[in-house]
Simulated assay, not measured.
Amino acid sequence: MVIRAEVLTVRTVADQPASGVLRVAVAGVLDEATAPDLRAALDDAVAAGNPAVLEVDVAGVTYCSLAGLRVFGEVQHRFGGTLQLLGMGQAIRRLLDLQQRLAPAGTSRR
């Protein structure tokens, strides 16, 4: 599966049904405009493969807003399996840290 929005590419790079792992690579800009495309692509990938682990390689993401980052939490919640972000750069790590700091006391957004 390959989905191309104007500035976002999502493609399945490894599907290992025997081990229950599905890896998807995301590249480009991940923001409010492209987040719906990512959400749909990840939901479709999970529905088609029913993996136990969804690995999302974000090494190719050149920009990520909180709206883009929120997609991973939403997909994780609906998916119910393990979602792993691979290849995170400093920008995404900073957003994750910021999101954690902004979480109300006693809650976790991981």
Rank of each mutant, 00 (worst) to 15 (best):
N50R: 15
N50W: 03
P51I: 03
V53W: 11
V53H: 12
L54R: 06
L54P: 08
L54A: 08
E55G: 00
V56R: 02
D57Y: 02
D57P: 02
D57F: 04
A59L: 10
A59H: 13
A59E: 13
G60P: 12
V61T: 11
Y63H: 13
Y63V: 01
C64M: 11
C64A: 11
C64G: 08
C64R: 05
S65P: 04
S65T: 07
S65Y: 02
L66A: 15
G68K: 03
G68E: 02
G68H: 01
L69W: 06
L69H: 09
L69V: 05
L69M: 13
V71T: 12
V71F: 04
V71M: 09
V71R: 01
E74K: 14
E74P: 01
V75C: 07
V75I: 13
V75Q: 05
V75S: 06
V75L: 07
Q76P: 00
Q76K: 11
H77S: 15
H77L: 08
H77C: 05
H77E: 15
R78C: 04
F79Y: 12
G80S: 07
G80Q: 07
G80D: 06
G80A: 08
G81T: 12
T82D: 11
T82L: 13
L83C: 06
L83M: 10
Q84D: 12
Q84A: 13
L85N: 03
L86N: 05
L86Y: 03
M88E: 15
M88Q: 13
G89H: 09
G89Q: 06
Q90M: 10
I92P: 03
I92F: 02
I92T: 09
R93E: 14
R94H: 14
R94M: 13
R94V: 11
L95R: 04
L96S: 08
D97A: 15
D97N: 09
L98Q: 12
L98S: 09
L98P: 05
L98W: 04
Q99A: 15
Q99S: 15
Q99Y: 05
Q100I: 00
L102T: 11
